[in-house]
Nucleic acid binder design. Structure first.
Length: 804
RNA sequence: GCGGGUGUGGCGGAAUUGGCAGACGCGCUAGAUUUAGGAUCUAGUGUCUCUUGACGUGGGGGUUCAAGUCCCUCCACCCGCACCA
């Protein structure tokens, strides 16, 4: 007989809701554990089988921690601003708010049907004005501290659609929708000064228990590099420029300079003979997107400006070129080129036949750039020195002579924070007619998004808000007129701090009660997909550090331990996608196999961080295991099986039970759910072989199963005669002494190969063990006529005889 | 190109500090049972060898009494970044 999952799952979900079983007490006396999922964007497609993987992992962890006596915060919410809802609104004329609300309802139903132990009293929705009030509040704080500023930045402008596009909406220089041309157009944008935090974001990675790959990605993204900034005079002009280099030691080998095509000095220094060539080149570059400039540029291109820079080390004239391999956004947008010791400069010099001068010995600069370390040559006071020392000496010389300075540069850019969109948090800024700009005062927050009759592009590149009356404001005191900022925040904004609000979700007076934050921060475990490795996790860390600086949060870092769940692939080992028709819908599985089976299967398929293909057969196997458990506990009449007896006598199951408790507890703690579950299976297999099973073991087993398959476990717990939910029952403990048997099996090897096995008392001495091994008949036979050279004895494990 | 990771049966995957390779599940084989089942139970299942045994963790080499695990080298695949001076 198998259990009726539809009945049982409904029954216990109702019970939990009615009894508020998972309500978290913010200020309880218990030790606190905060287990967080990356909250989802509630898309119209509904839940994907990938979602429950991470959610089940944190749920198992949370449920086990509750049973171990911790107060657990395990919340869920909705990252509900975002492009799809806006696009839907533009396409259909419907309201993005309604669309979003509908999607959330679907997601919530689906998530509830999976039996996760969330405290739904703490549900958060980033589009709720009571929530985004505080997102806006944080923005005004950033603005006050000078960390939010406006700058002219190129955006992807699509004239045909009359709108600005996000990078991911531009494919090969055309709009994803409609394939219209997209051009780069400078517009005034809000920027957040994340670069001020670059060093701290980098350094504090050290103390985090995160996958090394993610930390590395963040390190690369921040891209700290040390070097020097060198000032160059321009021959015949009263102008100077600076160039950043990590190899100031090669300054004597700098034979030309290159500016980014957009470099502001180009206009001033270009000679009349070269003007046409330079303009033509710049025009060509302008139509290329960033992607094309970087991706397709294998061959070096450029144009000579006609001007010369003076090498400050040797006063030699260096022709100044422009080329798109130099990026305006990094360093100062100008470089000194050392073709002998830099591959890019070498390629460029070859293409345009520029001089190559060796200053580091050891390579063959007639054939290729030499980038390794070596003794310096042709370098005056650096001659003979190796790289590190030469760099130090050169920086010293530059600083002494005022020609340059040691400098650290980052790849990380400031965060482009505005979006020309309707469906996002309004940026709470007013631009006054006198040209000044003020933040909306805290008492006027939230600045709510107005309802529009129709969401459609403004046509000017501004957000749809630009055409509504909402933008017009008048200062009640002075009567001055103003215009609201029409840009909204990016989707990242709401997710930068949601984990703080879960701690105190309904606080009307502050972002969260500092006392409560102190109880719960930092987050003990944070699980989500690796696609957020850089942006979300870096932005959230940045805001958190800022909030720490202004005294709002008590910790420097938000997420102590991070884990990335792997992807669930389709049966053919390919990504699930609608077009391949291999998408598995959780609703179907919940209805056919039950939520417990889905949870169990997703945890059993493989390690949590691995990408594993879905298997319907594997899913069936998981259900079969739960049925096996059920049949072991419950007989045909629907009451507890006769095999289960109330006894304290020692039974053959004693050892395997204690082993199971030990392994499952450790494995679940370390998120090794696949191996923990396999141990639960071992216990059940052994129990099937036994005539009688002590009830205490079954009670313990059901407790250990309950985090994985909570509905079934609650049902069995009730049948076993317990009245309350299993949620707060004490987690089983094991007795180490029960794990070792009196007799152990010893492997006897000859030359490292297993020849036989013997049983001996567990505390037998080394000498005795060796003797027993040597006396063994089979061994005697095998070593006859051979010389025993050495015997290695590992007590409790093996004896290895070296004989030949 | 740079950085990170992964290679173990027919498949998903297990294997403390080097100490019985293949736990557990899927699949497969045989038997039992059932009116029937894609149900259930029991046993078996790395490869070759009818036995003894030999071989086996991507390939090659090394250290060791003993290597999936440590070292060198090569190969394949996956992820991220990609002219960042």
């Amino acid at each position: 007989m198998s259990f009726n999952h539809q009945e049982i799952e409904k029954k216990w979900q109702d019970y939990w809701a009615e009894h508020q079983t998972f309500k978290t007490n913010t200020f309880s006396d218990k030790e606190k554990v905060y287990a967080l999922d990356m909250f989802p964007y509630p898309s119209g497609a509904g839940l994907h089988v990938g979602h429950p993987e991470g959610y089940t992992a944190t749920d198992i962890f949370s449920r086990m921690k509750r049973m171990q006596g911790y107060e657990v915060l395990h919340p869920m919410g909705w990252d509900a601003f975002g492009l799809p809802a806006e696009q839907y609104a533009i396409d259909t004329g419907n309201s993005p708010a309604e669309f979003t609300e509908h999607n959330i309802a679907t997601f919530k139903r689906q998530i509830k049907e999976l039996g996760f132990s969330y405290d739904w009293n703490r549900e958060i929705n980033t589009t709720d004005p009571n929530y985004y009030k505080w997102t806006q509040w944080i923005f005004t704080k950033l603005y006050e501290k000078g960390l939010a500023y406006m700058d002219e930045v190129p955006v992807n402008w699509c004239p045909a659609l009359g709108t600005v596009l996000a990078n991911e909406e531009v494919i090969d220089g055309k709009s994803e929708r409609g394939g219209h041309p997209v051009v780069r157009k400078p517009m005034k944008q809000w920027m957040l000064k994340i670069t001020d935090y670059a060093d701290r974001l980098l350094d504090d990675l050290e103390e985090l228990d995160w996958p090394e790959s993610i930390k590395d990605m963040q390190r690369n993204w921040i891209g700290r590099s040390e070097g020097a900034e060198i000032t160059f005079n321009i021959d015949g002009y009263d102008e100077q420029f600076t160039a950043f280099t990590t190899r100031p030691d090669t300054l004597f080998g700098a034979t030309y300079a290159v500016f980014a095509p957009e470099h502001p000095l180009v206009e001033k220094i270009v000679t009349s003979e070269q003007r046409d060539a330079v303009n033509a080149y710049r025009k060509k570059i302008e139509t290329k997107s960033d992607l094309e400039r970087t991706d397709l540029a294998k061959e070096k291109t450029g144009a000579f400006t006609g001007a010369y820079a003076i090498n400050p080390a040797n006063q030699e004239k260096m022709p100044i070129w422009i080329a798109d391999y130099v990026l305006m956004g990094y360093g100062s947008g100008a470089i000194m080129a050392v073709p002998a010791h830099d591959e890019r400069d070498y390629a460029f010099a070859q293409t345009f036949d520029l001089p190559i001068k060796e200053v580091v010995a050891g390579g063959n600069v007639d054939r290729e750039a030499f980038t390794e370390d070596g003794a310096h040559v042709n370098s005056d006071f650096l001659n003979g020195l190796m790289k590190d020392e030469a760099i130090g000496q050169m920086i010293e010389w530059l600083e002494d002579t005022g020609k340059g300075t040691g400098k650290v540069t980052y790849r990380l850019r400031d965060w482009l924070f505005s979006r020309q969109r309707y469906w996002g948090e309004p940026i709470p800024i007013i631009h006054w007619e006198d040209g000044s700009m003020t933040a909306v005062p805290e008492e006027n927050l939230p600045l709510e998004l107005p309802e529009l009759d129709e969401v459609k592009p403004s046509g000017t590149g501004e957000s749809p808000l630009a055409n509504s009356d909402w933008v017009h404001v008048t200062d009640p005191k002075t009567g001055m007129k103003g215009r609201r900022e029409t840009n909204t925040m990016p989707q990242w904004a709401g997710s930068c701090w949601y984990f703080l609000r879960f701690i105190d979700p309904n606080n009307p007076d502050q972002l969260a009660d500092p006392k409560a934050l102190k109880e719960w921060l930092p987050i003990d475990i944070y699980i989500g997909g690796a696609e957020h490795a850089v942006l979300h996790l870096l932005y959230a860390r940045f805001w958190h550090k800022f909030l720490y600086d202004v005294g709002v949060v008590p910790t420097k870092e938000p997420f102590m331990k991070l884990f990335n769940q792997g992807m669930i692939l389709g049966e053919g080992n390919e990504k699930m996608s609608k077009s391949k028709g291999n998408v598995v819908n959780p609703d179907d599985i919940v209805s056919s196999h039950g939520a417990d089976t889905l949870r169990l299967y997703e945890m059993f398929m493989g390690p949590l961080d691995a990408a594993v293909a879905w298997s319907t057969k594997g899913l069936d196997g998981s259900r079969r295991f739960l049925d096996r458990v059920w049949r072991l506990v419950v007989n045909e009449q629907g009451v507890v099986s006769e095999k289960i007896v109330d006894t304290s006598e020692a039974t053959p199951l004693e050892k395997v039970y204690h082993e199971t408790v030990k392994k499952v507890t450790g494995d679940f703690e370390h998120l090794h759910f696949n191996t923990g579950i396999s141990q639960l299976m071992v216990f059940i297999n052994e129990s099937y072989k036994a005539d009688k099973i002590p009830k205490a073991y079954i009670d313990g087993f059901v407790k250990m199963l309950s985090p994985v398959a909570p509905h079934l476990s609650e049902e069995m717990w009730e049948l076993l005669g317990h009245e309350d939910t299993i949620t707060y029952e004490k987690w089983p403990e094991y007795d180490e002494s029960k794990l070792v048997e009196d007799e152990v099996e010893i492997v006897i090897q000859i030359m490292g190969k297993v020849r036989t096995k013997i049983h001996v008392a567990k505390d037998i001495s080394k000498e005795e063990l060796e003797q027993k091994a040597m006396e063994n008949e089979r061994i005697q036979e095998l070593i006859k006529g051979k010389t025993v050279r050495k015997v290695i004895v590992v007590p409790g494990k093996l004896v290895n005889i070296v004989a030949n």
